[in-house]
Each structure stands twice: as C-alpha cells, then as structure tokens.
C-alpha cells in the first residue's frame, strides 16, 4: 500500500519527531510511505480566517502534491478536517475530490483503514489524559460526543488501549476545547490562554502525567500554558506513543 505523508507546516518546523513517528509507524505496517517534497500547508489557517482568495493557491498546491496517491495520511486532525470539509476555495475537479475523500488523519487511518490489532512494540507506563481536539472529536468523529449522549466509542482510546502499561485519567471536562483555535490563539489571546490554562489544570487535577493528542497544535498551546503555570505535565503526540516512545 502506498501512502503520501502530509506533515503540516508547524509540525515540520516545531515537532519533527511527530512526523518521524508517523512515518516510522506506517512503515512498521509495511506501508510504502512517500513524503512529497514540495508540500507546504493545506490552506487551513487562511480559510479559517475566511480568506478564500488567499487560501486558493495554497489549496491548489496541496492538491497538486497529493492527487496521485491512493491515500494521504497526516498526524493532524484539524488539517484533515479542513481538507475533507472545507477545501473549496478552488474548483472541485476530480483531483480535488480525490484528495478530499482520501486524506486521513493518522488515528482514523490506523483504526478504520488498517484496522490495526496490536502495537507489540509500544509501552507507555504513565498516567495519560487524552485530549480530543475539536477537529477530531466533532469534525472527524473520533469519539462519542458528550453533547449528544451517544453510546461511548473512542478511536484514539481503542488504539492507545493496546499499548502496554498505559493508564488513563479523565478530566472533569473531557470534551472542552483547549482554546488554541489557530489564529484565535493570537487574536483572542486573553480567552485562548484562559481556556488553555483551565484545560491543563483540569488534566493535572485528574492526575495526568502526560497529555496525549492527535493534534500537535493543541499540544503546542497546552504545553505553552502548562509551562507558564509551572505545572509538571508532559505532552506527547499519539503517533509517538503508538510508535513505541517510552516517555
């Protein structure tokens, strides 16, 4: 199986280890992973600001980079959500439609497409609080949503549950947004930071040593908040745990 790896811009720059873990993990399952070298961004930060004109050339480049692959996989829920639901600043050609319907966030790719049964190499003997980003939770339907009162399910927990030694803690408000929100984190700094501070405090109070998420952007925000508050919390992307990171 051939897969194109999309490493979002901020992961590329700030969290290369997340991209590496994703690539290695996919390779463990015998997948032929390619990383198109001219990739940049999916257009989300622009489109989320309403700037369709500005998003258009970025989206066009994204499609050009990835249209020839049967699957596009990325360790980012919000980028996947953008591609799948909102990549419409450019004409909806066959190539665009293909890319939009064949881009998968890593957790759903492992859970739904590969249907992974085990991660024998993975062991994470820590107390972990899961942060479902809003893009994965309500956008991609990674897990049951507290607002709907639907039967419980969680793709990330189903995967993490296969990791040796891992222990889960649940915060008071598991579905509450952490306040990153892309440009929201800057233009609405007071609220964003308050939400982030509340979020990490909630996880800390629940006894978490680590916060794990499928979105590095939420983690970047929460890490910044926890460090400023002086909370002893560590942050790790789900790809890293599933790929065998021990800490």
């Amino acid at each position: 199986m051939k897969v194109a790896l999309f490493v979002p811009c901020f992961v590329d720059a700030f969290f290369p280890e997340v991209g590496i873990a994703t690539l290695e993990l996919l390779e463990r399952f015998g997948i032929d992973v390619e990383y198109p070298l001219t990739q940049t961004c999916c257009g989300q930060p622009l489109a989320n600001s309403g700037c369709q004109v500005e998003a258009a050339p970025v989206e066009a480049l994204f499609v050009k980079n990835f249209a020839d692959y049967p699957y596009i996989v990325t360790p980012s829920g919000s980028c996947t959500h953008h591609v799948r639901h909102y990549l419409d600043a450019i004409p909806q050609t066959d190539a665009v439609r293909h890319v939009r319907t064949h881009t998968f966030e890593l957790v759903e790719f492992l859970h739904d497409i590969l249907e992974v049964e085990a991660f024998p190499w993975a062991e994470f003997p820590h107390k972990v609080g899961l942060h479902n980003s809003c893009g994965t939770l309500r956008g991609l339907r990674h897990a049951s949503m507290s607002e709907l009162g639907e039967p419980f399910f969680s793709k990330p927990l189903a995967l993490l549950g296969k990791v040796k030694g891992i222990e889960f803690v649940t915060p008071q408000r598991p579905d509450e947004c952490c306040g990153f929100g892309g440009t929201f984190s800057l233009f609405e700094e007071p609220v964003s930071a308050k939400m982030g501070h509340d979020k990490v405090s909630d996880h800390k109070a629940a006894g978490a040593d680590y916060i794990v998420s499928a979105d590095s952007s939420c983690l970047m925000h929460q890490k910044g908040c926890a460090e400023r508050l002086g909370l002893d919390l560590k942050f790790v992307h789900i790809a890293q745990i599933l790929n065998g990171a021990r800490a």
Partner: peptide
C-alpha cells in the same frame, strides 16, 4: 500575543523535511 501567557515552543535542531532528506 502568544508569549503573554504561554511559553514558546522549543526550536528543534532540524525540520521534518531536513530529517527526511
């Protein structure tokens, strides 16, 4: 705006792109 109430992310030695190459 980022740094008012949050620490900046650390800068790694190389980008993913660099590692991949």
């Amino acid at each position: 705006a980022w740094g008012k109430q949050r620490e900046n992310p650390a800068t790694p030695d190389q980008t993913f792109y660099g590692w991949y190459l």
